[in-house]
Structure formats: C-alpha cells, structure tokens
Design a protein around this nucleic acid. Structure first.
Lengths: 261, 261
DNA sequence: ACCTTTGCTTGATCTGGATCAAGCGAAGAA
DNA sequence: TTCTTCGCTTGATCCAGATCAAGCAAAGGT
C-alpha cells in the first residue's frame, strides 16, 4: 500500500499484493450496504466471480471520464470518490461524494457512455463490475435483479433530495444538511458520526451545494461560533446534532414557501 | 369523454368507453418512446397483458401521493402530469413535467413507497403497470430488462441535468433551457416544436426552476420583447430558437465558473 | 349581468450570497 | 532554511433575483 501507483489506469492488474484488497464479497464488511445486500450466499459467490478488484487508486485518479464508453459499474470499497459533470461553459457541477459500499456509474447505462466523471478523493480501493456480465447474472438471480432496480431507484431518490436542497434551501440549511448526511453515512459504515475528516475541499463542497467557497468558509466559522461543531481544517467534530437537524428542518426564516394549485 | 369523472380513483375500471383509451400497446403511437421500445412484437403482446388502462383523469387528480404504498408504474398516454415532493417546511419542489410516453414512479421502487406525488395537469389518459408483474416479466424478456435499466438510468441522467440547471445557471438560462426542452420533447411526439400550449402555471414553472413567479413572468415578457418568442398566456410560439440555444449555452455573463483540483 | 377568485403582470425595494480583494498558515520544493 | 503554492479565511462591496405591493383580465359562480 506504500508503493506509489499514482496515475496508473484502473484496468491494470496482476500485481501481487497481500493486503485486504482482494477480499471476496463474502468476506467484505460491506455486504450489508453493497450490491450483495440480501443475496443468498451461493448467489454472492456467483456475483463475486465477475467482480474485478484492481489495485488501489490515489487522490486525483479517475475511475472514468465524461464521454468514456460505459463498461462497468464501480463500487467504493475504501476511501472516497466524487462524481462531477461539466456544465456547457466550462465549469463543473459536483454531483456526489461516494463512500464505501456506494455504486458509481449507474447514470451511464442509458446512453452507454458516461455523462459525468469520477475522481478519487483519497487513496481508495475500488471494485469493478462489468455491466454486461452483471446484467446476464441478474437474469438468473431474481433477488439480484430486484436489488439492481432498488439501487437505480435509490439513486433517483438521492438526486431528488439534492434537487430539493438546491431549489428550496438557503446556504445555512444546505451546509447543515450536507454535514448531517455525511455524518449519518459514516455512522452506517461503523465510523464516528460526530468526529470525522472531510476528504473534499471547501471548494468542492461549495460547488456541490451551489455556494461560493467564501460562503462555505463563513458558514463553518459561524457554525463553530454558535457552538454547533468544532472545525479544524478538514477535521469536523459535531457538538450539537439536534441544532443542526433543526436548521435543516427549517426552523429559521425562509424564502417564501411556494405552492401551486 | 364528456361525462364528468373528476375525483374518481385510478383503480376504478369496467366502464364501457369506446374512445381511443383502450388501444393496445401494439397499436399505440407511443411504442417508440414508451416501455415497449425495441421489444419484439410477441414480447409487446406479453407486456400488453399486464397493462391496465384506466378511465381518463382530470386536472388536479392524483396518480399517487407522497407516502402511498408503491404498486405500479404509470405511463402518460395523452395529456401531462407533474410530480412534486414536499419540502420539510410545507413548501414543495416540482420535480418534473411528464409528457406522453414518459414513465412515472421509478423513484418509489427502492423504499416501496412513493416519495413524491403525481398530479394530472390536464385531462389525461394514463396506463398503469403493476410493478410486481412487470418485474416477473423482465426475468424472461432480456430486452425488457435492459429497457428497464435504461429507463431508470435515463431518469438519473435527467435529474442530473436539472441539478446542473439549479446549481449553475441564472434565471434567464433556466427558463430558456426549460422551454427548449419542452419544445424538443413535444416535437418527438409529433407536435409542433415552435407553437404549443403550456399545461402548467407560471407558478409551477417557477417552482420547478427555483425562481419566483414574478421572475418567470418578467422573463417571458423580456423574451417576447427581445423577439425570441411570442407569448400569449399559455400559448407559446418560438420565433428564434437559435438565440434561445445560445442563451442556454451560456454566451452571456455568468457567475464565476467554479472548478476544483 | 355582477361578483369573486385565480393567475399573471409590472413596479419599487430589499437582501442573501456572489464577487472582489487581501492576508495567512501549512505543506511541499529547492 | 527560504520560497512558492494552495487552500482557507475574513472584510468590503455589489447585484440578481426575492419579496412586497398594486392592478388587471379571464374564468367561473350566483
């Protein structure tokens, strides 16, 4: 894990590494979050056979780029990944930050090409699942097919939430929602919900939330001053989770609530 | 079609109506846009057997409400539908406007319950597809399964586009993008791309685009003054499509283009 | 015919957050 | 060590679009 392999492509393999990279699905701690969720052991075995486990990637490496032909889904095993789409004018919109167990690339099935890029935020282990083989497999494993439908559907639900965030919430609510979401997802993965490190920059957070870097920075300062959390660079310690929840719920002043007939 | 059936529930049927409501999938003009896309005739026949064709719904009727148990997907045959999600404070976010051939309810598969509501914007014919039976069917028709994956994936792609709109575009670009998208979708359905009626209110457009009604209204006026289109209440005639495209592409002044390492 | 409601437009004002502009400390490079 | 870069913070100013406030016309009700 210490030798550098920055910049190498995902499709390289046949390296003898004895670390935990090659863990079979059955032994992976993520079975309850990842694709195998709810599968019978013998079905997990079959899924396991088509999963490629590549060498670890490093900060800045791409899983795929916008425009690439779609071949595989990717699952974060350890580390974190961001996905982002180019906007016509040259800027980009960060679409999501992905933690262990989360599947990346589902949006590419339709057009058979990736519409967004995926970049690794820190040294990460990634499982690669060739989609054609997965699709075959789902034909004979009903529960896997169902799991796929759920996964795709879940992604839609998440986009909807982000839509609500960008369309209806002010800066404060956005950042609070972001931090709480992160906290909860980390907790599900057995990590602390109240003490964690951000793997993304202020700039990336701002882009994701539709805010300027300066606004994000000011909000972190404000949250700390208000005793909601302690912030030291990337290190976040949540002190008053309830107050954060209240912010998101919108106990504060809001833009006019829009409703229509 | 003239007798009132406002307020009746979708699940009612056994009414003898001889209008074009009961057209089988094979005879429906939407085969090339809808679920049957790319299916062999005999497979369309099998799909057809599970489709329920209910009586027409009217403005304001619900297909389903947020929180309802998920049972079926719905496809617009004629008319239009909007979907919207409640935001915690009582407002709501319009998630989409759905035209003939478009499938509604895909976001509910994951949680087995609808996270958003769907309301009919004008008198509309809707096909209902029980999901459990559809899922069975996809097990034995590979091309239908693939079509389902594409459909779900496409929905994700569309959400991503809206995300980009809300996160990175100004008011002018948003409305231009909205009108062009509508124009193109209508055109695909054999209707005029340059002369059409809006089935949604200014309020609903504003909500969808994250803008106040007043801003939407002012922009319509501006677009007309600039000779881009003619606007008469709900009646839109696009005069200069290229200029609209240019607006969306972002040839104007923009907020700072954000990019990160 | 008259009243009420609803949706839309237009004008005036206000403000949250973007933008502009420094400055600062940590991490890496020479 | 010193220099440079990079990410972050903080302050000052600006502005797109929200909000407030009328007024108007179409549609529907009585």
């Amino acid at each position: 894990m210490t030798q550098a392999c920055r910049g190498k492509s995902v499709s390289q393999r046949k390296v003898i590494s004895l670390d935990d990279l090659r863990v079979a699905c059955r032994n992976c701690s993520l079975t309850s979050l990842c694709l195998p969720m709810g599968l019978a052991p013998e079905d997990i075995e079959r899924l396991d056979e088509i999963v490629k486990r590549n060498r670890p990637l490093h900060r800045g490496d791409f899983l795929f780029r916008e425009g690439d032909r779609f071949r595989s889904l990717f699952v974060v095993k350890t580390g974190s990944v961001k996905t982002f789409a180019p906007s016509p004018e040259g800027g980009e919109q960060v679409l999501g930050f992905h933690l262990p167990g989360e599947v990346i690339g589902l949006d590419a099935i339709d057009k058979d090409a990736h519409a967004c890029s995926a970049k690794v935020l820190e040294t990460s282990a990634i499982c690669e699942i060739p989609f054609a083989r997965l699709e075959e497999l789902t034909m004979s494993i009903p529960s896997l097919q169902h799991q796929m439908y759920r996964l795709l559907s879940k992604e839609i639900g998440q986009d909807t939430e982000l839509l609500l965030l960008l369309g209806k919430k002010n800066a404060e609510e956005r950042l609070a929602a972001f931090l709480l979401s992160l906290s909860k997802r980390l907790h599900k993965r057995g990590l602390s919900a109240t003490d964690f490190y951000l793997s993304m920059s202020r700039h990336e957070i701002g882009n994701y939330l539709g805010l300027a870097v300066e606004t994000v920075s000011r909000l972190f300062t404000r949250f700390q001053d208000d005793g909601l959390m302690r912030v030291d660079r990337k290190h976040i310690q949540i002190i008053d989770q309830d107050a954060l929840e209240a912010l998101v719920g919108g106990i504060g002043q809001h833009r006019r609530q829009q409703q229509q007939s």
